[in-house]
């Protein structure tokens, strides 16, 4: 019991790092995914092809390989180490954020594409008839409806993201899983530590699920 209490501070600081990783990579991933979805739906092959390739590559390979390629792979090359990218790539924190963001953008991009395609064309025609500018139309008509459409799927993706951050522990980051491992290996009582870490994860997912439910309700009213 003593040991469990004394391990709580390091687990809590791990949970805080997990939250940072989740929040940052979700925010960046969402921004990027809008671009990915639009490029994927674009009429121009020059935009569509890279988007298709990006989605294919990141969804067809395991996240752990992506993280290791970015972390250990990039560090191998002198050219990368001498470039302006190195201050970012040398930090395991940013490597994790980059890998998680790209991975998330590929999955969310596909979800968002479905959402955008589900917006009925009649609405777009109506908005055009009202003389709406393309960007305005996209911001006011298409995107909000697409988001409402994808919210349940996106909620699942957010929960997947919380779990994906655990892989950051493999590149020296002491997030929740990493902290649990560090404490477990010193105390020789590992099971308790991992159970507590699991409870932290469940709590985070519960919070996300509640937020999504609240969001769904609100958006339903707005509609």
């Amino acid at each position: 019991m003593d040991m469990i209490l004394s391990s709580l501070p390091s687990l809590a600081s791990g949970a805080w790092l997990t939250l940072q990783l989740v929040a940052l990579s979700l925010a960046l991933g969402l921004l990027l995914s809008v671009g990915v979805a639009l490029a994927r739906l674009s009429g121009s092959v020059l935009l569509r092809a890279p988007a298709v390739a990006f989605i294919f590559l990141f969804r067809s390979t395991p996240l752990l390989v992506q993280i290791f390629l970015i972390f250990y792979g990039a560090g191998q090359f002198v050219a990368v180490r001498d470039s302006f990218l190195w201050p970012v790539l040398r930090e395991p924190y940013w490597c994790a954020i980059i890998a998680l963001t790209l991975n998330n953008a590929a999955y969310t991009g596909e979800i968002l594409r479905g959402g955008i395609q589900a917006v009925s064309f009649g609405q777009i025609e109506a908005a055009r008839a009202l003389g709406m500018h393309r960007l305005l139309l996209f911001r006011r008509i298409v995107l909000p409806q697409a988001f409402r459409q994808i919210l349940p799927a996106y909620g699942n993706e957010m929960i997947q993201m919380v779990q994906a951050t655990s892989l950051a522990s493999t590149i020296t980051l002491m997030e929740l899983t990493g902290a649990a491992r560090a404490v477990a290996s010193r105390s020789f009582q590992p099971v308790e530590m991992f159970v507590i870490a699991g409870l932290f994860y469940l709590a985070m997912n519960f919070a996300i699920a509640q937020a999504v439910r609240w969001g769904e309700k609100r958006l339903a009213h707005a509609g």
Binding site: Y72, G75, Q76, R81, W86, R90, T170, T172, M174, G178, A182
Partner: peptide
């Protein structure tokens, strides 16, 4: 903290 000494050396090399 690295999982293995080899990974540590690898990251030492990368700076």
């Amino acid at each position: 903290r690295y999982d293995t000494q080899e990974q540590l050396a690898l990251d030492m090399q990368s700076g």
